[in-house]
Computed example of a mutant assay.
Amino acid sequence: MYEFLVGLEVSDNDAYSDYREGMKPILTSYGGGFGFDFVVSEVLLSEVDTPINRVFTIHFPNKTTAEKFFSDTEYLKVKAQFFDVSVSHITILSGYEKDT
């Protein structure tokens, strides 16, 4: 399994919820899913200057499948409609192979 640890600055929670709802069936069709999901109230230490108020893990069967998902035309439509207007900053904290 390949997993990303992601930090976001969500600026519009309603639109972000619509994004999650719209992209989840596409994610599932690629064998992907979410692991942990946190709303963060305070970041005590950061290696980046951009703010983070949401941290989650997203996983796929492998890295190639993740790349295919993120370039899927239907996913990109949902992303443009909801994600791009709801998220101010994206920080990929890590990407790694995970033992299941």
Rank of each mutant, 00 (worst) to 15 (best):
V87T: 10
D18L: 08
F82M: 08
Y16M: 03
L5G: 02
L8R: 03
L76R: 15
S41C: 10
L5Y: 07
T50S: 12
K77Q: 10
V55S: 03
G95C: 07
G95A: 02
S41H: 10
K63N: 15
T91R: 12
G7L: 00
E3D: 09
G95Q: 11
V43G: 01
F60D: 01
E3W: 09
S94W: 14
T50R: 13
V78I: 15
G32P: 02
L93H: 14
I26V: 01
L45W: 10
Y19Q: 00
I52P: 02
K63E: 14
Y30Q: 00
F56K: 04
V78G: 00
S94R: 11
F83G: 01
S71F: 00
F70W: 14
D18Q: 12
G32A: 05
I58Q: 02
V48M: 06
G7Q: 00
K98I: 11
S17E: 09
S29P: 01
Y30L: 00
N53C: 06
V40A: 01
V43Y: 00
S94P: 08
A66G: 00
Y96R: 15
I52Q: 04
A66W: 09
T73N: 13
Y19D: 03
A80P: 06
A15K: 03
F36T: 13
V87R: 09
I90K: 11
A80T: 12
H59D: 14
K77S: 14
V85F: 07
M1N: 13
T100N: 14
L45S: 11
K68S: 11
E3Q: 14
L45E: 15
V40Q: 03
Y75T: 00
A15L: 10
S11V: 05
D84K: 04
